[in-house]
Design a protein around this nucleic acid. Structure first.
Lengths: 268, 268
DNA sequence: CGCGAGCTTGATGCCGATCAATGCATGTGG
DNA sequence: CCACATGCATTGATCGGCATCAAGCTCGCG
């Protein structure tokens, strides 16, 4: 619905971050879902993704590894908990959420992934995925066959090291979320969430002050350990206080330092 | 410096889990802190630690890598957030907590580590540790120089794969904690925590029904996103309900399935 | 013995959950 | 094109779980 019908040849909705990335980086490609081959070595995301720091020859080998791409429509799952694990996925365009669920049906959004970020690391531990990955808008991922990545990273130190860094960074990120869930109050959580989002968007060339949320209030709430009503109320509160301008999913950040202060102003 | 006093020949505290492990597995060694060299290939923890699944020749190479050991007294830190990252650590005996802290001083216990578990994975991302690791009892760790581990894992597929599995498992574990923090109530959290602890202790040959907590109520609370009073009250409640017997840090589990039911009995 | 760290227990209050109604945008079928 | 359904968001009223504040208790230790 945000991204209406989207007949497979239709361009992605124009207001979506994914589309913006495509357009900003290569306008021609917005039109075709599977344009022509885009190698890691010439990918616009290479400074954010697996290829960081790789030399030219390494990159060319990586190109051969990451041969296939996959489109995932809004609302579809890239993988589900329990699926056998074969590959990692790098988000090329679009936006995902990952969520784990308890037996009783409760579930928890564990992260939101945007262009250049890796999906599927949870699958290595068991040869089965441990969470669901769901596209929040029409998306495209690069498929990275895991056993090939392992063998290639035996040859190329830089690739190996970069891969380890990515896994480690995920662990550090998760610890940050645990801190948030364990000790912050609703306002602090939402402020931290917004700052984190804008920071990542900024690293991708977007405005630091205006963004379109790809997820519902309920998904934000699940990620932050809050109910959707609380998320909504907190947005309204921020607006009243002049920190934000909120129009549905369209957010404009008016007072960034005000948000920052909220996050840091700890256990007062 | 971490292991200053404690004349090197003093036995570790007798009631501590670490000591119990040593005694159970090799009574002779409880006496000396640095007995004689214990190689991975002959370590009693090899089925829980990095060597899982390694063949004999691989193991021998790993032995040479993990040459040094380090004692950490109760209350001392193995590393601190910001310390430069050189090595991973495998807990040989004892018990640790890891915690992250926000600028404002708030902090959050992100995990408890017992024998056979790895510490320091957070450091890879930045070449600096991102959390503190503190010994909750007199402990000993094996020092695993990280760059040597990287190069060795380029030679040995099994080692590489095992290492990746360990990192991935940490990610999956963290997601489980996020689920707990984001959507469970106090009783469910504590029940899940106790079941997790006993399960890990059981994998190390201990009783499934009786354990000694190595951490304070406050540390449990920090880990579970609760205040220490709530932890204490919940322990008392469990005792009244006949689920546990609680004597300070001595816990006996009377009704394991009752605890299990609490954890699963979701969003009621 | 007395001190202090950690634990327990009670009284009270607040933050966020819950329940419920309304609003708003989009899509659908008559 | 309008009436209606649907999904999502907002807002209000009330409630409850956990935090907070405040005593006392227990146990190990100097």
């Amino acid at each position: 619905m945000l991204n209406p019908k989207s007949s497979p040849t239709a361009p992605p909705a124009n207001e979506c971050a994914g589309a913006q990335i495509i357009q900003r980086m290569n306008p021609n490609r917005a039109i075709h879902i599977e344009p022509f081959k885009v190698a890691c070595s010439s990918c616009n995301l290479r400074e954010l993704c697996l290829p960081v720091g790789l030399s030219q020859p390494d990159l060319e080998r990586l190109d051969r590894l990451v041969a296939t791409r996959r489109n995932v429509n809004r609302g579809d799952t890239l993988f589900r908990a329990g699926d056998s694990f074969q590959s990692l996925y790098a988000v090329r365009t679009g936006f995902f959420k990952t969520c784990v669920s308890a037996e009783d049906g409760r579930d928890q959004v564990t992260g939101f992934q945007m262009a250049g970020e890796l999906l599927g690391l949870d699958g290595i531990s068991n040869d089965r995925h441990a969470c669901d990955a769901v596209a929040l808008e029409d998306s495209q991922v690069c498929v990275i066959p895991y056993n090939q990545l392992e063998s290639l990273s035996r040859e190329f130190n830089d690739l190996q090291h970069q891969f380890h860094k990515i896994m480690s960074r995920e662990i550090v990120r998760d610890h940050g979320v645990m801190l948030l869930l364990g000790s912050m109050r609703a306002e602090e959580r939402l402020a931290a969430f917004l700052l984190n989002l804008t920071q990542r968007l900024q690293a991708r060339g977007f405005s630091a002050s205006s963004l379109v949320l790809r997820m519902t209030r309920e998904e934000i709430g699940s990620y932050l350990g809050l109910k959707l009503e609380t998320v909504s109320r907190t947005f309204s509160k921020f607006q009243e206080e002049g920190l934000l301008e909120v129009k549905q999913r369209q957010i404009r950040i008016i007072d960034q330092t005000g948000l920052q202060r909220l996050v840091n102003s700890a256990a007062c």
